[in-house]
Simulated assay, not measured.
Amino acid sequence: MNKAKVLVLGGLRDEALTDLKNICQVDIGPVGHRPEDDREWVLDHIAEYDGVIVAKMAFDREMIDAAKNLKIISTYGVGFDHVDVEYAKEKGIVVSNCPKSVLRPTAELAWTMIMASARRLHYYDHALREGVFLNADEYDNQGYSIEGKTLGIVGMGRIGQQVARFAKAFGMTIIYHNRHQVDDQIATELDAKYVDLDTLAKEAANNVLSFFKDGQAINQIN
Rank of each mutant, 00 (worst) to 15 (best):
S96F: 03
R104A: 07
R34K: 03
G92P: 00
A88P: 02
K56S: 10
H126S: 10
L70H: 08
E36T: 00
D44H: 11
R119W: 05
M113Q: 07
R39I: 01
V83K: 05
H122A: 14
A88W: 03
P35S: 00
A67T: 01
D125C: 03
H122N: 14
Y49V: 08
P105S: 04
L103S: 14
D50G: 07
H82V: 13
A55I: 06
P105D: 06
N97Q: 06
L128D: 09
D65Q: 10
H122M: 13
Y123G: 09
A47C: 07
P99R: 12
R119V: 00
K71R: 15
W111E: 07
T75S: 07
P99Q: 11
D44P: 02
A88F: 02
E108W: 09
E36D: 01
I93Y: 05
D38F: 00
D38M: 01
L70D: 07
I53H: 07
A55P: 05
Y87V: 04
V85E: 09
L103V: 09
S101V: 13
V102I: 14
T112A: 13
C98N: 13
S96W: 01
G51S: 09
A118N: 08
A116Y: 08
R39W: 05
I46P: 09
C98I: 07
E130A: 13
Y123A: 11
R119K: 14
E48A: 10
H82R: 14
C98E: 14
A66W: 04
A58F: 02
A110F: 15
C98W: 04
E62A: 06
A110Y: 15
V42Q: 08
I46K: 10
L43G: 00
K100M: 11
V83R: 08
R120C: 13
A127N: 14
F80L: 08
H126C: 06
I53M: 11
D44E: 15
L121T: 08
I114W: 11
G92T: 02
P35E: 04
